[in-house]
Design a protein around this nucleic acid. Structure first.
Lengths: 160, 160
DNA sequence: CTAATACCTGAATAATTTAGTCGACTATAC
DNA sequence: GTATAGTCGACTAAATTATTCAGGTATTAG
């Protein structure tokens, strides 16, 4: 699981779409203008989102894109996975010779963190983002945090 | 907050360091060989980690790197922030003209998700990663269990 | 039917980031 | 003094990200 500016564009565009689809299909031209993302880049991203059945297209005048499922059925993980395709199988993709004990151990630890990240992003839906009662959002993240043992929780900073 | 292969290299290297530092300073050459990361790339990464006071260096023969703080005082967010520097201030970095109502709203929603991501990564320390229940042993026993019971585990892909 | 709209596709390319390489230098242990 | 190992800077190759261009196709309006 990677989290890059590309995924950020996709999530931002999807939030825009989710917010506006009530009035019918949303055009990429509109998203492009509102979110300042180049139209062709959006076309590439939405091509992938469509092929992953996250959005559906309506062609012709008055057309555009709409969500293919309910808002709470679309997670941030779905969006990022659709757009980042290459799914980056870890270095030693399962069967590569992990001769060194320690090498394999580190590898396991990393993939485990990766898995947790994925679970977290899969727990946040488009619905959560758009209908964000702030208390709810915090409660959700705390619930996730509680599943971790012995971790530090004091440093805030959040300059992400 | 970005999560790229660069951050992955840094986290992997830090896990390796954390596991081995009990025997004294750990050399980059060793990490390079074990984790298959080019030495010079590690030098770049550890230069940043050192300048962020996450690791400390010991020069000369027998030297290497050690953690600058206790394992549970170093979070994944710390590591990634140190290595990914540019801290990617969101498009409209606070004071850019957010004339369109909707534009600003989407922006807020995005930064909120970003913040939660950061909080999550800040809740996972190096200690958590290194001292987690041995995935390997568990995986092995589960595999045996499956053969005995003939049960089917839907392997949930997670190929993040 | 025609024209306008908007999705769809692929290719070329610029910009940026990632990753690796090289060469010279500094501190320290022995 | 010599070998070890970090430190620094600059250069380069490869990959990814983002944009632009140049065509298409499906659908609606008139």
């Amino acid at each position: 699981m990677r989290l890059t500016t590309k995924g950020r564009f996709a999530v931002t565009a999807m939030i825009d779409l989710a917010q506006r689809q009530a009035n019918g299909p949303v055009t990429l031209a509109g998203i492009s203008e509102r979110q300042k993302i180049s139209l062709s880049y959006l076309e590439q991203l939405f091509g992938k989102l469509r092929r992953h059945s996250i959005v559906a297209s309506v062609r012709g005048p008055g057309g555009g894109y709409r969500l293919a499922r309910a808002m709470n059925e679309v997670t941030v993980a779905d969006i990022i996975a659709a757009v980042d395709e290459p799914l980056d199988a870890t270095n030693c993709g399962g069967r590569e010779n992990c001769q060194d004990e320690h090498r394999c151990m580190t590898h396991d630890l990393w993939t485990n963190l990766n898995k947790r990240m994925h679970e977290y992003l899969a727990s946040v839906s488009l619905y959560d983002l758009v209908n964000q009662p702030k208390a709810k959002a915090i409660a959700a993240s705390v619930a996730i945090d509680d599943r971790l043992r012995g971790s530090r929780r004091d440093n805030a900073v959040v300059s992400a």
